[in-house]
Simulated scan of single mutants.
Amino acid sequence: MKNLTRSTLLFFTLLVCVNAAGWLYYVIMHGTVTRGMSMIRTTAPLLIGGRNGDETRYVLPVGTTLYEDKSYPEGFTRYLVYFNHKGPIDHETVTMEPNYGGSVVVPQWLESIDAVTLNEIFKRFPLSRRDVAAAVKANEIRRDDLIEIIGEMPE
């Protein structure tokens, strides 16, 4: 009887360990930070503000999926976005300091782009003839569309 109780206890202990290992494997392989978060996909490009309010602007392309992280009472929402990158990234290491509380979040600001702002961006980043040709070919714009666009341009 004592042997039967010992083997039963060993069996259940082993069963619990296997079950725990299975759940751990599932969480590691299939669990992500964004699991269960609301998602949106952008339908217009968004401006990404420069660090510390500098004048540099970058553009987040149309079709980017954003994961809603947290909404704040001040009236803004923080989103997460994923990027893939091949090769090494020029970087500096962030040293974890006690006042960070184990996490450093330094979000950048996103803004919707109006026509005036978009025009200002193109003034700072002029497009060459080759750039325009590549963009037109990539977007499959027809000759008639180009004629219409050129007709709307100022002299």
Rank of each mutant, 00 (worst) to 15 (best):
L14F: 11
L15S: 11
V16Y: 05
C17G: 14
C17I: 07
C17W: 01
V18E: 06
N19I: 12
A21C: 04
W23T: 01
W23K: 11
L24G: 08
Y25P: 00
Y25G: 12
Y25C: 11
Y26C: 11
Y26L: 15
Y26F: 14
V27R: 15
V27A: 13
V27I: 12
I28P: 00
I28C: 03
M29T: 13
G31R: 02
G31S: 02
T32C: 12
V33L: 14
V33Y: 13
V33D: 14
V33K: 03
R35G: 13
M37S: 10
M37F: 09
M39N: 03
M39P: 00
R41E: 10
R41W: 00
R41K: 13
T42G: 08
T43H: 11
A44P: 06
A44S: 15
P45F: 00
P45N: 03
P45I: 00
L46C: 05
I48L: 13
I48E: 04
G50Y: 01
G50P: 01
E55Q: 12
T56R: 15
T56S: 14
T56Q: 15
R57C: 07
R57N: 02
L60N: 05
L60V: 11
L60G: 01
G63N: 05
G63S: 07
G63V: 02
L66D: 03
L66G: 07
Y67L: 08
E68A: 15
E68F: 06
E68H: 13
E68S: 15
D69S: 08
K70L: 09
Y72D: 02
P73H: 06
P73F: 06
E74Y: 06
F76T: 04
T77I: 05
T77F: 04
R78G: 08
Y79C: 12
L80H: 07
L80I: 01
L80A: 10
V81Q: 06
Y82H: 13
F83K: 10
F83L: 02
H85P: 00
H85C: 12
H85Q: 02
H85I: 01
G87W: 01
I89M: 09
I89Q: 01
D90F: 04
H91L: 06
E92A: 14
E92Q: 15
T93C: 10
T93R: 15
T93V: 15
M96W: 00
P98V: 04
N99A: 15
Y100F: 15
G101N: 02
G102I: 05
S103T: 09
V105R: 09
V105I: 14
P107T: 00
Q108F: 04
W109G: 03
L110C: 10
L110R: 02
S112P: 11
S112L: 07
S112A: 14
S112V: 05
D114G: 05
D114P: 05
A115S: 13
A115G: 06
A115T: 11
A115K: 05
V116P: 00
V116D: 09
T117R: 09
T117Q: 13
T117L: 14
L118I: 03
L118T: 00
N119T: 06
E120C: 04
E120M: 09
F122M: 11
R124C: 00
P126N: 01
P126C: 01
L127G: 10
R129K: 12
R129W: 02
R130Y: 12
R130Q: 14
